[in-house]
């Protein structure tokens, strides 16, 4: 029983971190309609900045710098590249972000080299436990942070002028623009927010129990794509729920691999995608996705 609980808790905590990444995908998609494949390298950039700067600035200073740096770079990708492309075709823009991802990742790989950089987090490798279930402190803090961030994001979207502008711009950019909402500003804020969330997720993904900052971390961001898709592309609660579903499914598939042997070894790797396909078969618009209303 405690084994099942351990794996469940593990899955939930990982799922919340995946949710942070998936929400970034959603925010960018809602504010600019772009499938942002550069999200992984922005995440790595955030974690890299924290790892490089913590000896001088201390962990909290470095964290602030890393989050700000990732937010700034994400906003710049939008302002300097995405908004300048004449053809606002989602396909073209997605390919543009793949290009940005390759460039940024190559440079970060060059900087990091063969090293594994320590993130310098104060929680280190400590473990918290209760009722026979233990969890790395970093994951417990990650889960708490994610819940707080999701709540803050919900409040921002529902109760502030900025949230209203974002929602209006997402619903109908042309009309929103006519009503005096500056799309350049709402989209930059959307990208910046996604970058900041990615940096926070990056810090947790490179804390214990993973070794630290190394180029492969950017690939982990792609594990959040099934979460984003099954949540319904444009729904923040959907992305969070998607992250949880994927995190738990993956932890259980790995934890019970010996019982699931008839599915073949390494089933945990494909579980996110299997779950995504299954959910989309049952609910083509994802868990919380909006059906597109087409008026004839």
């Amino acid at each position: 029983m405690s084994y099942l609980l351990t794996q469940l808790v593990n899955g939930v905590s990982l799922g919340l971190v995946l949710g942070l990444i998936a929400v970034g995908f959603v925010v960018v998609f809602k504010s600019t309609g772009v499938l942002n494949f550069a999200h992984g390298s922005v995440l790595l950039l955030g974690a890299y900045l924290v790892a490089r700067l913590h000896p001088e600035l201390g962990f909290w200073g470095a964290l602030a710098a890393g989050v700000a740096g990732a937010a700034l770079v994400a906003a710049l990708i939008n302002t300097l590249l995405v908004r300048r492309v004449a053809e606002h075709d989602p396909g073209v823009l997605a390919i543009l972000t793949i290009g940005v991802d390759i460039l940024l990742l190559t440079e970060l790989t060059r900087q990091i080299g063969n090293d594994v950089l320590d993130i310098g987090a104060p929680w280190g490798a400590s473990v918290v436990g209760a009722a026979g279930v233990s969890l790395p402190a970093s994951r417990a803090i990650a889960a708490g942070t994610a819940v707080v961030l999701f709540a803050a994001l919900g409040a921002l979207a529902a109760r502030t002028d900025w949230g209203l502008a974002m929602r209006a711009a997402a619903a109908d950019p042309d009309t929103a623009s006519l009503m005096g909402i500056r799309l350049s500003r709402t989209s930059a804020v959307g990208w910046g927010l996604a970058g900041a969330l990615a940096a926070v997720a990056g810090v947790f993904l490179t804390s214990y129990p993973t070794p630290g900052v190394e180029p492969g971390v950017s690939v982990v961001a792609f594990a959040a794509i099934p979460a984003w898709v099954l949540g319904g592309f444009d729904s923040v609660p959907g992305a969070v729920a998607g992250g949880l579903v994927i995190g738990v499914a993956q932890a259980l598939a790995i934890g019970y691999e010996s019982e699931l042997h008839f599915l073949g070894g390494g089933f945990g790797e494909v579980v996110p995608y299997a779950v995504m396909v299954l959910v989309l078969l049952l609910r083509p618009h994802g868990l919380f996705g909006q059906k597109e209303a087409i008026r004839v």
Partner: peptide, 23 residues
């Protein structure tokens, strides 16, 4: 032998460690 297959992208071995402990 209790084999656990992973990929180079897996950097968090928590679930695998729990499975090894259980075995």
């Amino acid at each position: 032998i209790h084999p656990i297959k992973i990929t180079p992208q897996d950097s968090d071995m928590s679930a695998q460690a729990a499975a090894l402990e259980r075995a």
